[in-house]
Design a protein around this nucleic acid. Structure first.
Lengths: 363, 363
DNA sequence: GACGATCAGTGGATCGATCAAATCATAGGG
DNA sequence: CCCTATGATTTGATCGATCCACTGATCGTC
């Protein structure tokens, strides 16, 4: 246990520890950074002094000398109204925990909404961060190009869609595979006429997911003509598209690009007196809070965000230590969480532990 | 525009700028920190040199000398499964944006789940942060006591429930007022027998909110006997409690401590063939994603999280500059977002803009 | 015209760590 | 016994900013 010390007291420095242990400053430094250079007994003496004094190296001094801040920058995008960044939450938390294991921290920053580059360069010049984690590769390549140009280390959550010769490490989740899982599941519970409800054609992620549905349907020899619909990502748009599709009474399955869209489908079913999971099967994407709480529970594709975060941190460390990364990109597999929107006797939705939601309520 | 420069190049330092401008280092420093000390023409000359070179002060050096990191620590709690920290999201984002205005950044850190104190002391010793923002005051006073003991600056989101002589600045949202708004709204649309569905008695926040319902009911002279129910915060528990309450056919209103509970009530209504907003009115708390997307749209109490964040940042600055804070605590008013669970012709739920949800999907 | 007061700007020391190179100790080989 | 090789530890310089004490210049005043 290190002693409690008030901030107004002087914190012990490396020199303090050195004096206490009867060695030089450098030896203490070595004890921390290159313990193998010290003789066993010296190391223990220094260690004892460190513990007694409750010494922690001053980050600023270390940072100044080594030109490394042990900080990883993450641009925290403006949250739009209604956005479910509950996902981001899982991701960021794992990021924080994993980086902590090696003494790194996550630095959040923001930038002008209209300028995706804002904020990056300043942090670099100020040597405030060692590397960046970038999450929105589908919005374009502006950030990655900037960072490559200035030679800043970074990794991305998301494959380099538009940049065939990108040279940065990345991790992504196979959206096509997710849609494929969803489709196969719908087939396995008896559906044949399965519609796709997705985003506009301009969305790379959306088209990728859609391709999974197309592929699966083709594999089974099912016709997809008239079944693939694209719309904007909101509940109401999805509800209306679902109504149109349901005019065709043979349609009994919906594979959706997001939970929001899937929930729109559920609303339409409700308005038509159709029973989700019995008359019609619906699968969403992202396993968001909405999927948990919506009646009667929404089957959804879940991204392994925790694993994504862990792998990204590993990649960051590789880049920072100039280890070659091979392969450059890693594609992770999503999983399917089955609820009552496809299987009537699946567990009831939303058994959310008490503590969790209390935290939710506080923000 | 500052010139693009590779990381491997040497960044310009204060000395570089000084040489360029033909002044001393200190003068450049003053140009940045105390421009009023310089003559107008000198200032402009220095400014020009700074712009030409694209100089940004090195954070580490500044931090070492001034003993101030311009970082604010925020412990990012483990997100439990199903937790809606979409709220946290709004809050954190505003925090990031507001602190950025004064050159501060948010440093996320985590700690052992079983030790609320883990992480704080280390960051302080390492002079990695200037202050903390604490969000979970209802879990106890362990953190605040620690920080007070070591004399570290901090502010809290949440009043000091258990600590009458706490001396730190805080911001909170008046939960009782929120429940009061909810109850008044239900009364205004014609309900008289309004039930409370809340958390266990051990929850300070829960009891605070409940008191608002009690007060409102009493003000109208409405009887609350048998109408106040406490349960665990999950959809299914709420659904079952709602069924019990609905045995009493006179109950037509539900005021809930959270959206999760309110959604449980909606499920129960659905199972009984009762129409939300027409036969029974339901109000939730927090205006979470669930409230947006649930059929038919859930009226909910919304916390002004953005304002909370802004005020907290203001308080942090006061504390850091040793300005006295008066009054110590600030209580903000929540608002009510009306949807179809109380008013049948309210706007349709979930018109979520495209961009938002695409971000959601990426995490 | 000498004086102190104010303003503008300078130079050296300093924050606390690490780096690079020097020193001291010990041992082994000729 | 000297000399080199190796290991363990120390010393001085350094990272890039700010703090502190100081110098020159300008100005008003008696």
């Amino acid at each position: 246990m290190s002693p409690i010390r008030r901030l107004t007291d002087q914190y012990p420095t490396l020199a303090t520890v050195a004096e206490r242990a009867g060695v030089s400053r450098q030896t203490v430094s070595n004890a921390l950074n290159n313990p193998e250079l010290l003789r066993e007994d010296t190391l223990q003496r220094v260690q004892a002094a460190i513990d007694e004094l409750g010494y922690t190296p001053n980050r600023a001094a270390r940072q100044l000398r080594t030109r490394s801040s042990h900080m990883i920058g993450l641009r925290f995008e403006p949250a739009q109204e209604g956005t479910s960044n509950a996902l981001m939450d899982r991701f960021v938390h794992t990021l924080v925990e994993t980086t902590a294991e090696t003494g790194h921290h996550i630095l959040l920053f923001s930038g002008a909404a209209d300028d995706p580059l804002d904020g990056y360069d300043e942090l670099l010049r100020a040597t405030a961060v060692d590397a960046f984690v970038i999450t929105d590769t589908y919005t374009g390549t502006a950030e990655t190009e900037l960072l490559r140009r200035v030679g800043a280390p970074f990794v991305t959550f998301g494959r380099p869609w538009d940049d065939p010769d990108a040279a940065h490490p990345w991790v992504d989740v196979d959206g096509a595979r997710g849609a494929c899982l969803a489709t196969e599941h719908l087939v396995s519970v008896g559906h044949r006429r399965i519609a796709w409800l997705g985003w506009e054609e301009t969305s790379r992620i959306g088209e990728d997911r859609r391709s999974g549905w197309e592929q699966s349907m083709a594999d089974h020899g099912f016709d997809t003509r008239g079944l693939g619909v694209r719309t904007t990502d909101n509940v109401d748009a999805a509800r209306m598209e679902a109504h149109k599709l349901l005019e065709d009474r043979t349609v009994t399955g919906f594979c959706c690009a997001s939970d929001t869209l899937a929930i729109g489908v559920l609303h339409a079913l409700h308005e038509r007196g159709l029973r989700p999971g019995i008359d019609v099967g619906v699968v969403g994407f992202d396993d968001s809070l909405g999927a948990h709480v919506t009646w009667p529970g929404l089957t959804s594709v879940r991204q392994p965000l925790e694993q994504v975060a862990r792998e990204l941190v590993e990649l960051v460390h590789s880049v920072l230590s100039h280890r070659p990364v091979e392969p450059l990109g890693r594609m992770l597999e999503p999983t399917l969480v089955v609820r009552r929107s496809t299987v009537p006797d699946a567990p009831r939705p939303g058994t959310i532990p008490r503590a969790a939601s209390s935290a939710a309520t506080r923000g």
